[in-house]
Design a binder for these strands. Structure first.
Length: 621
DNA sequence: CCCCCCCC
Protein backbone atom coordinates (compact mmCIF):
# COMPACT_ATOMS: atom_id res chain seq x y z
CA UNK A 1 0.00 0.00 0.00
CA UNK A 2 1.10 3.57 -0.51
CA UNK A 3 0.93 6.48 1.88
CA UNK A 4 -0.05 9.86 0.57
CA UNK A 5 0.60 12.84 2.85
CA UNK A 6 -1.58 15.91 2.45
CA UNK A 7 0.96 18.04 0.61
CA UNK A 8 0.63 21.72 1.42
CA UNK A 9 -1.39 21.16 4.54
CA UNK A 10 1.16 22.75 6.85
CA UNK A 11 1.51 25.88 4.78
CA UNK A 12 -2.25 26.18 4.52
CA UNK A 13 -2.86 25.69 8.23
CA UNK A 14 0.01 27.93 9.28
CA UNK A 15 -1.22 30.76 7.12
CA UNK A 16 -4.61 30.69 8.74
CA UNK A 17 -6.41 28.30 6.44
CA UNK A 18 -8.06 25.06 7.18
CA UNK A 19 -7.42 21.57 5.96
CA UNK A 20 -9.85 18.80 6.72
CA UNK A 21 -8.22 15.74 8.27
CA UNK A 22 -4.74 16.12 6.82
CA UNK A 23 -2.48 13.07 6.64
CA UNK A 24 0.85 14.01 8.21
CA UNK A 25 3.99 12.29 9.27
CA UNK A 26 5.56 12.53 12.69
CA UNK A 27 9.28 13.23 12.36
CA UNK A 28 10.04 13.81 16.00
CA UNK A 29 8.71 14.57 19.42
CA UNK A 30 9.94 16.68 22.27
CA UNK A 31 8.82 16.70 25.85
CA UNK A 32 8.21 20.13 27.32
CA UNK A 33 8.30 20.68 31.05
CA UNK A 34 4.67 20.91 32.03
CA UNK A 35 3.46 23.41 34.57
CA UNK A 36 1.10 21.47 36.80
CA UNK A 37 2.67 18.07 36.59
CA UNK A 38 1.19 17.43 33.14
CA UNK A 39 3.79 16.76 30.51
CA UNK A 40 3.32 18.48 27.19
CA UNK A 41 4.69 17.17 23.94
CA UNK A 42 5.66 19.07 20.86
CA UNK A 43 5.64 17.14 17.61
CA UNK A 44 7.64 17.73 14.47
CA UNK A 45 5.14 17.13 11.70
CA UNK A 46 5.60 16.89 7.97
CA UNK A 47 3.25 16.99 5.03
CA UNK A 48 6.05 15.73 2.79
CA UNK A 49 6.74 19.22 1.58
CA UNK A 50 7.00 21.27 4.75
CA UNK A 51 7.83 20.29 8.26
CA UNK A 52 6.65 22.19 11.26
CA UNK A 53 7.70 21.92 14.86
CA UNK A 54 5.07 24.09 16.55
CA UNK A 55 2.48 21.40 16.95
CA UNK A 56 1.47 20.74 20.53
CA UNK A 57 -0.16 17.53 21.49
CA UNK A 58 -3.28 18.06 23.58
CA UNK A 59 -2.58 16.48 26.94
CA UNK A 60 -5.46 14.07 26.61
CA UNK A 61 -3.46 12.46 23.82
CA UNK A 62 -0.35 11.99 25.97
CA UNK A 63 -1.20 8.34 26.26
CA UNK A 64 -0.34 8.01 22.58
CA UNK A 65 3.20 9.00 23.46
CA UNK A 66 3.22 6.64 26.41
CA UNK A 67 2.00 3.82 24.20
CA UNK A 68 4.70 4.56 21.60
CA UNK A 69 2.04 5.31 19.03
CA UNK A 70 3.71 8.48 17.83
CA UNK A 71 7.22 7.26 17.17
CA UNK A 72 9.31 8.80 14.44
CA UNK A 73 7.89 8.19 10.92
CA UNK A 74 4.38 7.45 12.16
CA UNK A 75 1.74 8.64 9.70
CA UNK A 76 -1.32 10.13 11.28
CA UNK A 77 -4.62 11.42 10.15
CA UNK A 78 -5.28 14.63 12.09
CA UNK A 79 -8.96 14.58 12.93
CA UNK A 80 -9.27 17.66 15.10
CA UNK A 81 -6.94 20.54 15.73
CA UNK A 82 -7.00 24.20 16.41
CA UNK A 83 -4.48 26.82 15.51
CA UNK A 84 -3.62 29.49 18.05
CA UNK A 85 -1.89 32.70 17.11
CA UNK A 86 0.67 33.74 19.66
CA UNK A 87 2.80 36.86 19.64
CA UNK A 88 3.83 38.39 16.31
CA UNK A 89 1.37 36.28 14.44
CA UNK A 90 3.21 33.03 15.11
CA UNK A 91 0.80 30.12 14.96
CA UNK A 92 0.82 27.06 17.10
CA UNK A 93 -1.25 24.03 16.27
CA UNK A 94 -2.92 22.14 19.07
CA UNK A 95 -3.52 18.56 18.04
CA UNK A 96 -6.79 17.47 19.57
CA UNK A 97 -7.52 14.14 17.97
CA UNK A 98 -5.73 11.90 15.53
CA UNK A 99 -5.70 8.41 14.15
CA UNK A 100 -2.53 6.52 13.46
CA UNK A 101 -2.61 5.57 9.78
CA UNK A 102 0.62 3.68 9.81
CA UNK A 103 3.08 3.09 12.59
CA UNK A 104 6.58 4.48 12.56
CA UNK A 105 8.04 1.04 12.35
CA UNK A 106 5.95 0.21 9.33
CA UNK A 107 6.78 3.41 7.50
CA UNK A 108 10.41 3.49 8.54
CA UNK A 109 11.45 6.59 6.60
CA UNK A 110 10.78 10.24 5.96
CA UNK A 111 8.26 10.67 3.20
CA UNK A 112 9.23 13.28 0.63
CA UNK A 113 11.82 15.97 1.31
CA UNK A 114 10.22 18.28 3.84
CA UNK A 115 11.80 21.64 4.55
CA UNK A 116 11.09 23.61 7.69
CA UNK A 117 8.10 25.88 7.17
CA UNK A 118 8.90 29.49 7.86
CA UNK A 119 6.01 31.63 8.96
CA UNK A 120 5.10 34.44 6.62
CA UNK A 121 6.95 33.01 3.66
CA UNK A 122 5.14 33.53 0.39
CA UNK A 123 2.73 30.80 -0.48
CA UNK A 124 4.10 28.35 -2.94
CA UNK A 125 2.18 26.13 -5.27
CA UNK A 126 2.80 22.70 -3.99
CA UNK A 127 2.77 19.80 -6.37
CA UNK A 128 1.03 16.66 -5.26
CA UNK A 129 3.52 14.62 -3.36
CA UNK A 130 4.63 11.34 -4.81
CA UNK A 131 3.38 8.50 -2.73
CA UNK A 132 5.96 6.91 -0.52
CA UNK A 133 6.33 3.25 -0.16
CA UNK A 134 6.52 2.07 3.40
CA UNK A 135 9.70 0.21 4.03
CA UNK A 136 8.34 -2.06 6.71
CA UNK A 137 6.45 -5.24 6.06
CA UNK A 138 4.85 -4.49 2.74
CA UNK A 139 1.56 -5.99 1.69
CA UNK A 140 1.21 -8.58 4.37
CA UNK A 141 0.00 -6.41 7.25
CA UNK A 142 -1.16 -3.22 5.61
CA UNK A 143 -2.36 -4.30 2.26
CA UNK A 144 -5.78 -5.65 3.04
CA UNK A 145 -6.86 -3.10 5.59
CA UNK A 146 -8.03 0.43 5.05
CA UNK A 147 -5.50 3.17 5.69
CA UNK A 148 -7.18 4.34 8.87
CA UNK A 149 -6.48 1.22 10.76
CA UNK A 150 -5.07 1.86 14.10
CA UNK A 151 -7.33 3.46 16.64
CA UNK A 152 -5.45 5.44 19.26
CA UNK A 153 -5.63 4.06 22.73
CA UNK A 154 -7.25 7.08 24.27
CA UNK A 155 -10.21 7.43 26.57
CA UNK A 156 -13.57 7.19 24.91
CA UNK A 157 -14.84 10.58 23.89
CA UNK A 158 -17.16 9.55 21.11
CA UNK A 159 -20.01 11.93 20.60
CA UNK A 160 -18.21 15.01 21.70
CA UNK A 161 -15.96 14.88 18.76
CA UNK A 162 -18.45 13.98 16.15
CA UNK A 163 -17.96 17.35 14.60
CA UNK A 164 -14.80 19.07 15.67
CA UNK A 165 -13.67 22.49 14.59
CA UNK A 166 -11.54 21.45 11.68
CA UNK A 167 -13.95 19.07 10.09
CA UNK A 168 -16.98 21.24 10.44
CA UNK A 169 -15.25 24.39 9.33
CA UNK A 170 -13.90 22.70 6.28
CA UNK A 171 -17.40 21.86 5.20
CA UNK A 172 -18.46 25.41 5.75
CA UNK A 173 -15.69 27.30 4.13
CA UNK A 174 -17.26 27.31 0.65
CA UNK A 175 -20.41 28.82 2.10
CA UNK A 176 -18.49 31.39 4.11
CA UNK A 177 -16.44 33.32 1.59
CA UNK A 178 -15.77 36.13 4.04
CA UNK A 179 -13.99 33.86 6.42
CA UNK A 180 -11.47 32.12 4.26
CA UNK A 181 -9.81 29.30 5.93
CA UNK A 182 -12.55 28.67 8.41
CA UNK A 183 -11.51 27.43 11.75
CA UNK A 184 -7.81 27.78 12.26
CA UNK A 185 -8.08 30.59 14.74
CA UNK A 186 -6.48 31.63 17.93
CA UNK A 187 -8.23 31.47 21.25
CA UNK A 188 -10.03 34.70 22.05
CA UNK A 189 -10.84 35.84 25.54
CA UNK A 190 -14.60 36.06 25.97
CA UNK A 191 -14.15 39.72 26.87
CA UNK A 192 -13.04 40.38 23.29
CA UNK A 193 -16.10 38.92 21.62
CA UNK A 194 -18.26 41.42 19.78
CA UNK A 195 -21.00 41.14 17.17
CA UNK A 196 -18.67 42.73 14.67
CA UNK A 197 -16.50 39.85 13.77
CA UNK A 198 -16.94 36.16 13.55
CA UNK A 199 -13.44 34.74 13.35
CA UNK A 200 -12.83 33.64 16.87
CA UNK A 201 -12.53 30.57 18.98
CA UNK A 202 -13.10 30.72 22.69
CA UNK A 203 -12.16 28.15 25.26
CA UNK A 204 -14.52 28.31 28.17
CA UNK A 205 -16.04 26.34 30.97
CA UNK A 206 -19.77 25.79 30.98
CA UNK A 207 -20.93 27.17 34.31
CA UNK A 208 -24.66 26.80 33.85
CA UNK A 209 -27.05 24.94 31.63
CA UNK A 210 -30.80 25.32 31.69
CA UNK A 211 -33.38 22.69 31.02
CA UNK A 212 -34.97 22.56 27.59
CA UNK A 213 -37.97 24.78 27.35
CA UNK A 214 -40.51 25.17 24.58
CA UNK A 215 -42.26 28.30 23.49
CA UNK A 216 -45.13 29.13 21.27
CA UNK A 217 -46.17 32.64 20.31
CA UNK A 218 -47.28 34.68 17.35
CA UNK A 219 -43.83 34.55 15.84
CA UNK A 220 -43.70 30.79 15.94
CA UNK A 221 -42.78 28.04 18.29
CA UNK A 222 -39.77 26.00 19.18
CA UNK A 223 -37.51 24.90 21.94
CA UNK A 224 -34.42 26.33 23.49
CA UNK A 225 -32.01 26.13 26.33
CA UNK A 226 -29.40 28.50 27.61
CA UNK A 227 -25.91 28.14 29.00
CA UNK A 228 -23.23 30.25 30.59
CA UNK A 229 -19.62 29.97 29.55
CA UNK A 230 -16.71 31.40 31.42
CA UNK A 231 -13.02 31.90 30.80
CA UNK A 232 -10.32 33.89 32.57
CA UNK A 233 -11.65 37.14 31.19
CA UNK A 234 -15.44 37.06 31.40
CA UNK A 235 -18.60 35.08 31.34
CA UNK A 236 -21.13 34.95 28.51
CA UNK A 237 -24.61 33.61 28.16
CA UNK A 238 -25.41 31.46 25.16
CA UNK A 239 -28.69 30.14 23.85
CA UNK A 240 -29.39 27.22 21.55
CA UNK A 241 -32.64 26.89 19.62
CA UNK A 242 -34.40 24.01 17.91
CA UNK A 243 -31.89 21.90 15.93
CA UNK A 244 -29.09 23.22 18.09
CA UNK A 245 -30.97 21.98 21.14
CA UNK A 246 -30.87 18.45 19.75
CA UNK A 247 -27.25 18.88 18.86
CA UNK A 248 -25.92 20.36 22.06
CA UNK A 249 -28.17 19.89 25.05
CA UNK A 250 -26.86 16.47 25.90
CA UNK A 251 -23.34 17.17 24.81
CA UNK A 252 -22.75 20.23 26.90
CA UNK A 253 -22.19 19.53 30.55
CA UNK A 254 -21.79 21.96 33.37
CA UNK A 255 -18.19 22.29 34.49
CA UNK A 256 -16.66 20.91 31.31
CA UNK A 257 -14.54 23.06 29.07
CA UNK A 258 -15.29 23.60 25.39
CA UNK A 259 -13.86 25.25 22.36
CA UNK A 260 -16.59 27.28 20.72
CA UNK A 261 -16.49 28.92 17.31
CA UNK A 262 -18.93 30.80 15.12
CA UNK A 263 -21.73 31.69 17.45
CA UNK A 264 -23.87 34.71 16.68
CA UNK A 265 -23.27 37.59 19.06
CA UNK A 266 -25.86 40.16 19.93
CA UNK A 267 -26.51 42.73 22.59
CA UNK A 268 -27.59 41.10 25.82
CA UNK A 269 -30.81 42.05 27.49
CA UNK A 270 -29.70 42.47 31.07
CA UNK A 271 -33.22 42.09 32.29
CA UNK A 272 -33.00 38.36 31.90
CA UNK A 273 -29.64 37.47 33.32
CA UNK A 274 -27.01 38.68 35.70
CA UNK A 275 -24.13 37.52 33.56
CA UNK A 276 -21.68 40.38 33.37
CA UNK A 277 -21.45 40.82 29.63
CA UNK A 278 -22.91 43.34 27.21
CA UNK A 279 -23.29 40.61 24.63
CA UNK A 280 -24.72 37.17 24.48
CA UNK A 281 -24.32 34.35 22.05
CA UNK A 282 -26.77 32.37 20.00
CA UNK A 283 -25.71 29.02 18.66
CA UNK A 284 -26.42 28.73 14.94
CA UNK A 285 -26.03 25.91 12.50
CA UNK A 286 -22.45 26.89 11.82
CA UNK A 287 -21.47 26.93 15.46
CA UNK A 288 -18.76 24.49 16.38
CA UNK A 289 -18.42 23.20 19.91
CA UNK A 290 -15.62 20.87 20.84
CA UNK A 291 -14.89 19.38 24.21
CA UNK A 292 -11.55 20.36 25.67
CA UNK A 293 -10.23 17.54 27.74
CA UNK A 294 -7.00 19.22 28.65
CA UNK A 295 -6.50 20.38 32.18
CA UNK A 296 -7.24 24.07 32.39
CA UNK A 297 -7.14 26.66 35.10
CA UNK A 298 -10.39 28.13 33.90
CA UNK A 299 -12.54 29.38 36.73
CA UNK A 300 -15.67 27.42 37.47
CA UNK A 301 -19.06 28.70 38.56
CA UNK A 302 -18.79 32.04 40.24
CA UNK A 303 -21.45 33.72 42.27
CA UNK A 304 -22.18 37.29 43.14
CA UNK A 305 -24.16 36.55 46.26
CA UNK A 306 -26.33 39.26 47.66
CA UNK A 307 -26.82 38.91 51.41
CA UNK A 308 -30.45 38.36 52.28
CA UNK A 309 -30.69 41.63 54.21
CA UNK A 310 -29.36 43.43 51.14
CA UNK A 311 -32.01 42.14 48.78
CA UNK A 312 -34.21 45.09 49.68
CA UNK A 313 -31.49 47.48 48.56
CA UNK A 314 -31.48 45.97 45.11
CA UNK A 315 -34.14 46.71 42.57
CA UNK A 316 -36.92 44.14 42.24
CA UNK A 317 -37.55 42.13 39.09
CA UNK A 318 -33.89 41.51 38.57
CA UNK A 319 -31.82 38.36 38.42
CA UNK A 320 -29.46 37.77 41.34
CA UNK A 321 -27.37 35.12 43.07
CA UNK A 322 -28.25 34.08 46.59
CA UNK A 323 -26.82 31.78 49.24
CA UNK A 324 -28.75 30.67 52.28
CA UNK A 325 -29.67 27.88 54.63
CA UNK A 326 -33.04 26.36 53.92
CA UNK A 327 -34.41 26.78 57.42
CA UNK A 328 -37.75 25.30 56.49
CA UNK A 329 -39.60 24.17 53.41
CA UNK A 330 -43.30 23.85 52.74
CA UNK A 331 -44.79 20.67 51.38
CA UNK A 332 -45.11 20.64 47.65
CA UNK A 333 -48.45 21.96 46.57
CA UNK A 334 -50.24 22.63 43.35
CA UNK A 335 -51.60 25.94 42.17
CA UNK A 336 -53.55 26.75 39.04
CA UNK A 337 -51.86 29.20 36.74
CA UNK A 338 -53.98 32.30 36.15
CA UNK A 339 -53.49 32.45 32.43
CA UNK A 340 -52.50 28.90 31.56
CA UNK A 341 -55.14 27.32 33.81
CA UNK A 342 -52.66 24.51 34.24
CA UNK A 343 -51.58 22.90 37.45
CA UNK A 344 -48.23 24.12 38.64
CA UNK A 345 -46.20 22.43 41.34
CA UNK A 346 -44.57 24.74 43.80
CA UNK A 347 -42.74 24.65 47.08
CA UNK A 348 -41.75 27.59 49.27
CA UNK A 349 -38.44 27.59 51.12
CA UNK A 350 -37.40 29.85 53.95
CA UNK A 351 -33.87 30.95 53.24
CA UNK A 352 -31.72 32.52 55.96
CA UNK A 353 -28.16 33.75 56.28
CA UNK A 354 -25.85 35.48 58.77
CA UNK A 355 -27.60 38.80 58.17
CA UNK A 356 -30.39 37.60 60.44
CA UNK A 357 -33.05 38.04 57.75
CA UNK A 358 -35.08 35.36 56.06
CA UNK A 359 -36.59 35.45 52.60
CA UNK A 360 -39.02 33.20 50.84
CA UNK A 361 -37.78 31.38 47.77
CA UNK A 362 -40.19 29.47 45.56
CA UNK A 363 -39.30 26.37 43.58
CA UNK A 364 -41.44 25.29 40.63
CA UNK A 365 -42.17 22.09 38.78
CA UNK A 366 -39.51 19.42 39.09
CA UNK A 367 -37.40 21.58 41.36
CA UNK A 368 -40.36 21.73 43.75
CA UNK A 369 -41.12 18.05 43.44
CA UNK A 370 -37.60 16.77 43.98
CA UNK A 371 -36.52 19.08 46.74
CA UNK A 372 -35.65 17.61 50.12
CA UNK A 373 -35.12 20.21 52.80
CA UNK A 374 -35.10 17.85 55.76
CA UNK A 375 -31.40 18.39 56.50
CA UNK A 376 -31.64 22.20 56.33
CA UNK A 377 -29.22 22.27 53.40
CA UNK A 378 -27.20 25.25 52.27
CA UNK A 379 -28.50 26.35 48.89
CA UNK A 380 -26.74 28.48 46.33
CA UNK A 381 -28.78 29.78 43.43
CA UNK A 382 -27.19 31.49 40.49
CA UNK A 383 -29.60 33.61 38.53
CA UNK A 384 -32.78 33.51 40.54
CA UNK A 385 -35.43 36.12 40.08
CA UNK A 386 -36.10 38.58 42.85
CA UNK A 387 -39.48 40.26 43.05
CA UNK A 388 -40.91 42.72 45.54
CA UNK A 389 -43.78 40.50 46.55
CA UNK A 390 -44.01 40.59 50.33
CA UNK A 391 -41.16 43.09 50.43
CA UNK A 392 -38.76 40.76 48.66
CA UNK A 393 -39.13 37.19 47.50
CA UNK A 394 -37.20 34.88 45.24
CA UNK A 395 -38.15 32.50 42.48
CA UNK A 396 -35.91 29.79 41.05
CA UNK A 397 -36.21 29.97 37.27
CA UNK A 398 -35.64 27.16 34.85
CA UNK A 399 -32.53 29.04 33.77
CA UNK A 400 -31.31 29.31 37.36
CA UNK A 401 -28.64 27.04 38.68
CA UNK A 402 -29.46 25.72 42.13
CA UNK A 403 -26.69 23.93 43.98
CA UNK A 404 -27.45 22.08 47.19
CA UNK A 405 -24.60 22.18 49.70
CA UNK A 406 -22.11 23.65 47.27
CA UNK A 407 -18.45 23.05 47.99
CA UNK A 408 -17.50 26.68 48.29
CA UNK A 409 -16.03 28.56 51.18
CA UNK A 410 -19.02 30.84 51.78
CA UNK A 411 -21.25 27.81 52.02
CA UNK A 412 -19.03 26.10 54.59
CA UNK A 413 -18.86 29.27 56.63
CA UNK A 414 -22.63 29.63 56.46
CA UNK A 415 -23.10 26.00 57.48
CA UNK A 416 -20.84 26.48 60.49
CA UNK A 417 -22.64 29.63 61.52
CA UNK A 418 -26.05 28.03 61.16
CA UNK A 419 -25.20 24.89 63.10
CA UNK A 420 -23.69 26.84 65.98
CA UNK A 421 -25.79 30.00 66.08
CA UNK A 422 -28.31 30.42 63.32
CA UNK A 423 -30.47 27.39 63.96
CA UNK A 424 -31.68 28.82 67.23
CA UNK A 425 -32.10 32.39 66.04
CA UNK A 426 -35.21 34.37 65.22
CA UNK A 427 -35.07 35.95 61.82
CA UNK A 428 -36.51 39.17 60.53
CA UNK A 429 -38.65 38.77 57.49
CA UNK A 430 -39.33 41.03 54.56
CA UNK A 431 -42.64 42.76 54.75
CA UNK A 432 -44.85 44.41 52.27
CA UNK A 433 -43.36 47.82 51.70
CA UNK A 434 -46.07 50.28 52.74
CA UNK A 435 -44.50 53.19 50.97
CA UNK A 436 -45.01 51.34 47.73
CA UNK A 437 -48.26 49.51 47.85
CA UNK A 438 -50.57 50.61 50.62
CA UNK A 439 -53.25 53.27 50.59
CA UNK A 440 -55.70 54.46 47.99
CA UNK A 441 -53.49 55.32 45.08
CA UNK A 442 -51.76 58.20 46.81
CA UNK A 443 -48.77 56.10 47.78
CA UNK A 444 -45.43 57.61 47.05
CA UNK A 445 -43.43 54.85 45.33
CA UNK A 446 -40.21 56.79 45.63
CA UNK A 447 -37.74 56.17 42.85
CA UNK A 448 -34.62 57.88 41.78
CA UNK A 449 -34.15 58.27 38.04
CA UNK A 450 -31.62 55.49 37.67
CA UNK A 451 -34.11 53.13 39.27
CA UNK A 452 -36.68 54.19 36.70
CA UNK A 453 -34.30 52.79 34.10
CA UNK A 454 -32.98 49.77 35.99
CA UNK A 455 -36.45 48.68 37.03
CA UNK A 456 -37.80 49.17 33.53
CA UNK A 457 -40.63 51.38 34.65
CA UNK A 458 -43.12 52.08 31.92
CA UNK A 459 -42.41 48.90 30.03
CA UNK A 460 -45.36 46.98 31.42
CA UNK A 461 -48.94 46.92 30.21
CA UNK A 462 -49.95 49.63 32.62
CA UNK A 463 -48.34 52.97 33.22
CA UNK A 464 -46.04 53.21 36.23
CA UNK A 465 -46.38 56.03 38.73
CA UNK A 466 -43.46 57.11 40.84
CA UNK A 467 -42.35 59.99 42.98
CA UNK A 468 -38.97 61.69 42.82
CA UNK A 469 -37.30 64.68 44.32
CA UNK A 470 -35.58 66.40 41.43
CA UNK A 471 -34.13 69.65 40.17
CA UNK A 472 -35.34 71.44 37.05
CA UNK A 473 -32.34 71.59 34.75
CA UNK A 474 -33.88 72.97 31.59
CA UNK A 475 -37.29 74.14 30.37
CA UNK A 476 -37.99 73.96 26.69
CA UNK A 477 -39.75 77.23 26.04
CA UNK A 478 -40.33 76.78 22.30
CA UNK A 479 -43.96 75.94 21.59
CA UNK A 480 -44.70 75.54 25.27
CA UNK A 481 -47.79 77.75 25.06
CA UNK A 482 -50.88 77.56 22.96
CA UNK A 483 -54.08 79.51 22.63
CA UNK A 484 -56.81 77.39 24.16
CA UNK A 485 -60.56 77.47 24.28
CA UNK A 486 -61.63 79.97 26.96
CA UNK A 487 -64.63 77.92 28.12
CA UNK A 488 -64.35 76.48 31.61
CA UNK A 489 -63.29 72.85 31.16
CA UNK A 490 -62.20 72.82 27.51
CA UNK A 491 -58.50 73.22 26.90
CA UNK A 492 -58.70 72.51 23.19
CA UNK A 493 -56.28 74.39 21.00
CA UNK A 494 -58.06 77.11 19.04
CA UNK A 495 -57.89 77.69 15.34
CA UNK A 496 -56.86 81.32 14.70
CA UNK A 497 -59.26 82.75 12.14
CA UNK A 498 -56.83 85.67 11.70
CA UNK A 499 -59.64 88.16 12.03
CA UNK A 500 -59.60 88.55 15.79
CA UNK A 501 -61.78 85.50 16.31
CA UNK A 502 -60.85 81.94 17.18
CA UNK A 503 -62.65 78.71 16.59
CA UNK A 504 -62.86 75.77 18.99
CA UNK A 505 -63.47 72.58 17.01
CA UNK A 506 -64.43 70.76 20.15
CA UNK A 507 -67.13 73.22 21.22
CA UNK A 508 -67.95 74.20 17.60
CA UNK A 509 -67.91 77.82 18.68
CA UNK A 510 -66.19 81.05 17.70
CA UNK A 511 -64.58 83.12 20.40
CA UNK A 512 -63.08 86.57 20.39
CA UNK A 513 -60.85 85.71 23.33
CA UNK A 514 -58.56 82.85 24.28
CA UNK A 515 -56.69 81.66 27.30
CA UNK A 516 -53.06 80.61 27.35
CA UNK A 517 -52.35 76.97 28.12
CA UNK A 518 -49.04 75.27 28.59
CA UNK A 519 -47.40 72.02 27.63
CA UNK A 520 -43.92 72.39 29.00
CA UNK A 521 -41.16 69.87 28.52
CA UNK A 522 -38.73 69.85 31.40
CA UNK A 523 -35.42 68.13 31.85
CA UNK A 524 -35.22 67.01 35.46
CA UNK A 525 -32.24 65.69 37.31
CA UNK A 526 -31.57 63.92 40.56
CA UNK A 527 -28.29 62.59 41.92
CA UNK A 528 -28.54 59.47 39.77
CA UNK A 529 -29.78 60.45 36.32
CA UNK A 530 -31.82 62.85 34.23
CA UNK A 531 -35.40 62.51 33.13
CA UNK A 532 -37.50 64.42 30.61
CA UNK A 533 -41.09 65.02 31.67
CA UNK A 534 -44.04 66.75 30.07
CA UNK A 535 -45.76 69.22 32.38
CA UNK A 536 -49.29 70.40 31.66
CA UNK A 537 -50.92 73.58 32.81
CA UNK A 538 -50.91 73.37 36.61
CA UNK A 539 -47.53 71.64 36.87
CA UNK A 540 -46.02 74.14 34.48
CA UNK A 541 -47.47 76.99 36.50
CA UNK A 542 -45.96 75.54 39.66
CA UNK A 543 -42.56 75.17 38.04
CA UNK A 544 -42.62 78.70 36.64
CA UNK A 545 -44.14 80.12 39.79
CA UNK A 546 -46.83 82.14 38.02
CA UNK A 547 -50.12 81.54 36.25
CA UNK A 548 -50.09 80.73 32.55
CA UNK A 549 -52.08 83.87 31.90
CA UNK A 550 -49.24 85.96 33.24
CA UNK A 551 -46.68 84.12 31.16
CA UNK A 552 -48.95 84.47 28.15
CA UNK A 553 -49.23 88.16 28.78
CA UNK A 554 -45.45 88.48 28.67
CA UNK A 555 -45.43 86.49 25.47
CA UNK A 556 -48.15 88.76 24.04
CA UNK A 557 -46.08 91.79 24.97
CA UNK A 558 -43.42 90.63 22.54
CA UNK A 559 -40.64 91.18 25.09
CA UNK A 560 -38.58 88.10 24.39
CA UNK A 561 -35.96 88.84 27.02
CA UNK A 562 -38.61 89.09 29.69
CA UNK A 563 -40.16 85.86 28.41
CA UNK A 564 -36.80 84.05 28.46
CA UNK A 565 -36.12 85.28 31.95
CA UNK A 566 -39.27 83.63 33.26
CA UNK A 567 -37.84 80.27 32.25
CA UNK A 568 -34.32 81.11 33.30
CA UNK A 569 -35.49 82.01 36.79
CA UNK A 570 -37.37 78.75 37.11
CA UNK A 571 -34.40 76.48 36.52
CA UNK A 572 -32.31 74.83 39.23
CA UNK A 573 -35.19 74.68 41.66
CA UNK A 574 -36.12 71.50 43.45
CA UNK A 575 -39.58 69.99 43.59
CA UNK A 576 -41.28 66.75 44.46
CA UNK A 577 -42.55 65.31 41.20
CA UNK A 578 -45.20 62.69 40.83
CA UNK A 579 -44.59 61.19 37.40
CA UNK A 580 -46.36 58.74 35.19
CA UNK A 581 -44.35 56.77 32.66
CA UNK A 582 -45.48 54.51 29.88
CA UNK A 583 -44.11 53.17 26.62
CA UNK A 584 -46.09 54.71 23.79
CA UNK A 585 -45.99 53.84 20.13
CA UNK A 586 -46.57 56.23 17.23
CA UNK A 587 -46.01 55.06 13.66
CA UNK A 588 -44.35 51.89 14.88
CA UNK A 589 -41.85 53.92 16.87
CA UNK A 590 -41.89 53.26 20.57
CA UNK A 591 -40.66 55.68 23.14
CA UNK A 592 -41.07 56.06 26.83
CA UNK A 593 -43.30 58.99 27.63
CA UNK A 594 -43.14 60.50 31.07
CA UNK A 595 -45.79 62.96 32.17
CA UNK A 596 -45.84 65.02 35.30
CA UNK A 597 -48.99 64.28 37.26
CA UNK A 598 -48.23 66.63 40.10
CA UNK A 599 -45.50 68.99 41.25
CA UNK A 600 -45.17 70.32 44.73
CA UNK A 601 -42.51 72.29 46.53
CA UNK A 602 -40.21 70.24 48.74
CA UNK A 603 -41.62 70.07 52.24
CA UNK A 604 -38.31 69.61 53.97
CA UNK A 605 -39.72 68.41 57.24
CA UNK A 606 -41.78 65.74 55.54
CA UNK A 607 -39.01 64.77 53.16
CA UNK A 608 -36.59 64.43 56.06
CA UNK A 609 -39.06 62.09 57.76
CA UNK A 610 -39.06 59.93 54.67
CA UNK A 611 -35.26 59.88 54.62
CA UNK A 612 -35.13 58.90 58.28
CA UNK A 613 -37.58 56.08 57.62
CA UNK A 614 -35.46 54.92 54.69
CA UNK A 615 -32.40 54.85 56.89
CA UNK A 616 -34.22 52.93 59.58
CA UNK A 617 -35.48 50.41 57.10
CA UNK A 618 -32.00 49.93 55.70
CA UNK A 619 -30.37 49.52 59.08
CA UNK A 620 -32.89 47.28 60.79
CA UNK A 621 -33.34 44.71 58.06
C1' DC B 1 -36.16 32.87 17.35
C1' DC B 2 -36.56 33.21 24.31
C1' DC B 3 -37.03 36.62 27.94
C1' DC B 4 -42.99 32.62 30.49
C1' DC B 5 -41.48 30.70 35.45
C1' DC B 6 -47.06 30.85 37.12
C1' DC B 7 -49.70 31.08 43.43
C1' DC B 8 -49.94 34.25 47.46
Amino acid sequence: MSLQLTAGAIQEIMSGGNVDKPILQVLGQKKIAGGNGADRYRLLLSDGYHSHSSAMLATQLNSMIDNNELEKFTVIELQKYICNTIQEGRRVMILLEMNVVSSGGDVGATIGNPVAYKPGQPKTDIPAQPAAQPTGQPAATNGASAPKISKPNTPARGGFYNKGPAAAAAQQSPAAPNTPGGSAQRIFPISHLTPYQNRWCIRARCTNKSAIRTWSNSRGEGKLFSMNFRDESKEIRATAFKEEVDKYHEMIEVNKVYYIQKGTLKTANKQYSNVDNDYEMTFNRETIVTLCEEETDLPSVSFKFIAINELGNNPPDTIIDVLGVCKSASDMNVVIGKTSQKEIKKRDLDLVDQSGVSVRMTLWGNDAENFDGSATPVIAVKGCKMSDFGGRSLSVLSSSQMIINPDIEEAHTLRGWYDSVGSSMDFDTYKRDDSQSSGGGHSANWKNFSQVVSENLGHGDKADYFTSKATVMFLKRENCMYMACPSESCNKKLVDNNNGTYRCEKCSKEYDTYKWCMILNARLSDHTDQQWATCFQESAETLLGRPASEIGAVKDSGDETAFDNLFQEATFKQFIFKLRTKMETYNEESRLKTVCVNVSPVNHEEYSKKLIEDIQRLTTK
